[in-house]
């Protein structure tokens, strides 16, 4: 049982990181970014290709993360330049369209056959009280946690973090006070792309990995982000790990296992129904 819980830590880390990126872009641009995970998968696959070309792993990962960041930056620029004033529905539709377009490009460039992806930290493991912690579980979880905590600290306790929160709350007022909102938004988009690419690189070895299934990591990540209603990074982190652990535990019960994919739906619905129970009306008057 505990062992299967641990299995959930790696996907949990990935959900947590992607959810964090979703929260960041949502808060800065009001976009629920459906193309988030595809962007990350792109980065991961570019990294894989580099690795396949004989370069060291760390360079491959670095290049992958950079590609994810750049791609995300491009999308962020499109969103701010063209769809800044558009409704949330339109913005989401745009990112859906971009997701489909990127998926098509991905299939074309990388093919849709499953790939075997090398483990990042193969081998070592520690056994404590009969439970085996593999190095990859420990390192992945640690990395995800530290990135998440670091981001939360930056957002919560630094001047730049305060600026970002100010921009997300009242962009025009922030600009009137001389805060370079447009640049900050672009930086956040780039970061979120990079983080997503890293997250997917971490989880890819443990998944049946083809371009599409990895892109669909978006859905559990969205469910995780909804824990904090797309507003809170710590809540998104917690949501991601919770979902991962539930998933791990469910693989332990044979009856539930096959319906694992339905889990995000139940979680999302419950979270939203609870949090929106008082929202009788649309926008305030």
């Amino acid at each position: 049982m505990i062992q299967s819980l641990l299995v959930g830590l790696i996907p949990g880390s990935a959900y947590a990181l992607i959810a964090t990126s979703l929260v960041l872009t949502y808060r800065m641009s009001g976009v629920m970014n459906f193309s988030q995970s595809v962007v990350g998968v792109f980065g991961t696959y570019v990294g894989l290709t580099i690795y396949g070309g004989g370069y060291p792993q760390w360079i491959a990962i670095l290049v992958g993360v950079t590609v994810g960041a750049l791609l995300s930056l491009v999308i962020g620029t499109i969103m701010t330049a063209w769809f800044d004033q558009a409704s949330a529905l339109i913005k989401s539709s745009v990112t859906i369209a971009l997701m489909l377009a990127l998926l098509a490009v991905g299939f074309r460039v990388f093919g849709d056959a499953p790939r075997s992806i090398p483990r990042l930290f193969a081998g070592a493991s520690i056994a404590v009280a009969g439970v085996t912690f593999s190095a990859s579980v420990l390192i992945t979880t640690g990395l995800a946690l530290s990135i998440g905590v670091l981001l939360s600290l930056i957002l919560g306790f630094t001047r730049v973090g305060a600026m970002l929160r100010a921009v997300s709350e009242r962009r025009i007022t922030a600009e009137l006070l001389g805060i370079p909102a447009a640049q900050l938004i672009k930086v956040v988009w780039a970061c979120s792309g990079g983080i997503t690419a890293l997250a997917i690189t971490l989880v890819a070895p443990n998944r049946p990995s083809n371009f599409l299934t990895l892109s669909l990591l978006l859905i559990p990540a969205m469910a995780s982000a909804l824990f904090g209603l797309f507003r809170s990074v710590p809540a998104a982190l917690a949501g991601g790990f919770t979902l991962g652990l539930i998933e791990g535990a469910s693989s332990y019960f044979d009856a539930v296992g096959p319906y694992r994919q339905a889990m995000p739906f139940v979680v999302i619905l419950t979270v939203l129904l609870w949090s929106q129970r008082k929202e009788v009306w649309d926008a305030s008057r």
Binding site: M32, M222, F265
Partner: peptide
Amino acid sequence: RGINLAAV
């Protein structure tokens, strides 16, 4: 409504 409905 909006993005919440889309997510669900």
